[in-house]
Simulated scan of single mutants.
Amino acid sequence: MTHAAWDRFSTTGHTPRDALSHWMRWGERAIGAIRVQPRDPARFRGAAARMTAGSATISVMRFSAASAAKATPGEPDDAILFSLPLAGSFRYAHPGADPVLVGPGDIYLRDLSRDWSLSTRGESRLVTLRLPFEDFVARYGDPGPLVGTRFCAGRADVACITGILRSVLPLLQSDGPETRQRVLADTLLDAFRLLAPEPAEDAPADALSLHRQAMLHIARNLGDADLSPATIAAALGVSPRSLQRVFQRRGETMQGVILDQRLARAAEALRASPRPGITPLAMNLGFNDPAYFSRAFAARHGCAPSRYRRHLAGLT
């Protein structure tokens, strides 16, 4: 396992504008491309450190109240992120899912291939561990049952993990000998096995990998009106029937996943900028029929996209 020294960064000494741009560049190296909006840009402050432990990236951050989101919605990042708040509360949200409030002692998992956002109200401290998807599967199994779940501080297994974190982290940050750092990092990563579910006999690692590849292909090609189980299977070099079975094991269909992601992306686009026309938005997301798009959007979000947009405009 290869380890690197801690890469440290602080906004101290930077102008407010430079502080924010440097913070986002540092965040891109630690957890992926992000955009940050401080509650008070003139007073935004942050300090952070990160290190690599094999393929994992461990980051420790302290920052002023802010909101953050994936910098490029729809651009997949094939990784899983553990988030462990040390101070402050975090409101996490994914399109199409209810927001989750996470506080000190809790553990929350994010799938970085999906769009996400978070917000904080005061100064916060956070530890994150980022693992490529394939390495996560090899170490912990299928992340599906874990992603988007808040593991509460009151649970014995969560308390054990956070206790190990608080014991190991100061030693890791002391830049000791590489052998000691490797043992400490492995101890921390192994602790998260306490959250891993029992592996399903009908979900081998190659099926998990195939599902992941299909999900990434869907996310990258939502604007393709010809996107279908057949074109996805052809792109991955497998038969449509084999790929359908992988989704069926998870209680999903590819057609349903494609529609879910398109509708979630549409809502995200309207939230980000309530100006796009409904027809161009539908076409950009692979809907050949704007009327069908409006009906599907209303069935999912409770109102037509035009009304959804007017509601958002009324909130600003």
Rank of each mutant, 00 (worst) to 15 (best):
L315I: 11
V127P: 02
A266V: 07
K70V: 05
L270Y: 03
C160G: 10
P274C: 03
Q173F: 02
T279H: 05
G88C: 09
D157L: 04
D106A: 04
R125I: 00
T11H: 02
A233R: 08
L171W: 06
R139D: 05
S273R: 12
C160D: 11
G88A: 12
V238D: 03
K70Y: 07
H94I: 13
I34Q: 02
S228L: 12
P276N: 05
G314T: 06
Q181I: 03
S83G: 11
H301I: 06
P132Q: 03
E75W: 13
H301P: 01
L81T: 02
G163S: 10
F82E: 04
T279I: 15
D98E: 13
R110I: 08
M215Y: 03
D157A: 05
R241G: 14
T187H: 06
R62K: 07
D186E: 15
V60M: 08
R166L: 13
F133D: 00
A205R: 14
R193K: 15
A219V: 04
R130M: 10
Q255L: 12
F44T: 00
R295V: 14
A269D: 12
E252A: 11
E198G: 09
T120H: 02
R155W: 09
I278G: 05
F90N: 01
A200Q: 13
C160P: 00
R114V: 05
S113D: 05
A282S: 11
V257A: 13
L109C: 06
G74I: 05
A185D: 04
L259I: 12
L208Q: 08
D115S: 10
E178I: 13
L216I: 15
P199V: 06
E252S: 07
M254Q: 14
A79H: 06
H3K: 08
S83Y: 05
G96V: 06
T120F: 00
Q248I: 11
R62S: 14
I232Q: 01
S209H: 14
V147K: 04
I232P: 00
R241P: 09
T179R: 15
A93N: 07
R62Q: 13
A79D: 08
G176T: 12
L20G: 01
I278C: 12
T128L: 01
L236R: 06
D206F: 13
M1F: 03
S242M: 09
R25Q: 14
T11N: 03
T120W: 00
W26D: 03
S67F: 01
S167F: 13
R110F: 08
R307N: 09
G237F: 03
I218E: 04
A87E: 12
A87W: 00
V238S: 05
A93L: 10
G122Y: 00
A56P: 00
E75V: 11
T2C: 08
P280Y: 12
T72D: 07
G105M: 06
Q261I: 04
R241Q: 15
D135L: 10
R45H: 12
I31F: 09
F192H: 13
A65G: 09
M24A: 15
M61A: 09
S83P: 00
R121H: 08
H3G: 10
Q261A: 11
R50F: 05
T52D: 06
P143K: 00
V257F: 04
G54A: 08
W23K: 01
N221A: 13
P240I: 10
S21N: 09
G176S: 10
